[in-house]
């Protein structure tokens, strides 16, 4: 379980995250939604120790992320941010094999290679393994990064807007894949999402943030309500049941 306790982040004069307390349950998919600037990515960065917090504590299975050894945490929790730029020229295989670094420290065992091959297969990247990252499209590149994070084989996998760069088909495939990672591999997947309908269709639990604080949390059925969406986004939307799912219509 990820326990977030009174976590705050001040950037200059602005308060990005104000005293958030939240428990993210083990297993399943949890989505964090909210308008731009609500502090979703900042919160995720602090949970994954990329950003130091101004106040508060985060523990992952009892390990405090600010004080626990970084290489120990790398075997429990992994994070993928939105924009990843790399200065060296890597192939997809090289990148995915880096996911084994917390275990192998650069000396890959046959088991590490097997896990990397499995992650490559899981993301359907077999044809691209020897291609260099700078020769790939944005979506293919993103899939390679997801493969690296899955290759890291951690219980908790955090994604900051994983659907960036994806067309419809790949976005749906990615969400199905994350669902499978949670259901078949028993991982705890935490996502920051902008598309409410994806959040509604694929999450077990939704956390809605606004102005640096958690505004609402609950199951998709509890969150996907007109009044709740209005209070989070300041926007009137229509919500309909389509094939048993709550779908928002907000385009016009």
């Amino acid at each position: 379980m990820i326990e977030i306790c009174n976590v705050s982040k001040t950037l200059g004069d602005t308060i990005a995250v104000r005293g958030v307390s939240l428990q993210i349950p083990r297993k399943g998919v949890t989505s964090i939604i909210g308008p731009n600037g609500a502090g979703k990515s900042t919160l995720l960065s602090m949970v994954s120790r990329l950003l130091p917090m101004t106040a508060g504590t985060v523990t992952v299975d009892g390990l405090d992320v600010t004080s626990a050894p970084s290489d120990l945490l790398a075997k429990r929790l992994s994070i993928l941010r939105q924009d990843n730029r790399i200065s060296s020229r890597l192939t997809v295989r090289d990148l995915v094999e880096f996911g084994r670094y917390p275990y192998s420290k650069g000396r890959l065992t046959p088991e590490d290679r097997e896990k990397a091959a499995a992650a490559i297969g899981f993301l359907d990247l077999e044809d691209l393994t020897e291609r260099f990252l700078d020769e790939l499209s944005g979506g293919q590149c993103q899939r390679a990064y997801v493969a690296m994070v899955l290759c890291q084989d951690t219980d908790y996998v955090l994604f900051d807007e994983p659907l960036n760069n994806f067309d419809m088909k790949h976005a749906v495939n990615m969400m199905k894949l994350l669902r499978r990672a949670a259901d078949d591999l028993g991982k705890t997947v935490v996502l920051v999402l902008h598309d409410l309908n994806f959040a509604s269709c694929y999450s077990d639990y939704i956390v809605a943030m606004r102005d640096g604080d958690v505004a609402h949390q609950g199951t998709p059925d509890e969150i996907m309500r007109r009044e709740i969406i209005r209070s989070v986004y300041d926007m009137d939307v229509e919500i309909q049941d389509v094939r048993g799912r709550k779908i928002t219509f907000y385009y016009t």
Partner: peptide, 20 residues
């Protein structure tokens, strides 16, 4: 020596992979 390759992946990726 083995850390340099990871450092080249950028700050966030290397922290994610457990490099201090």
């Amino acid at each position: 020596m083995h850390t340099y390759d990871v450092l080249a992946l950028g700050r966030e990726t290397s922290i994610n992979l457990g490099v201090n």
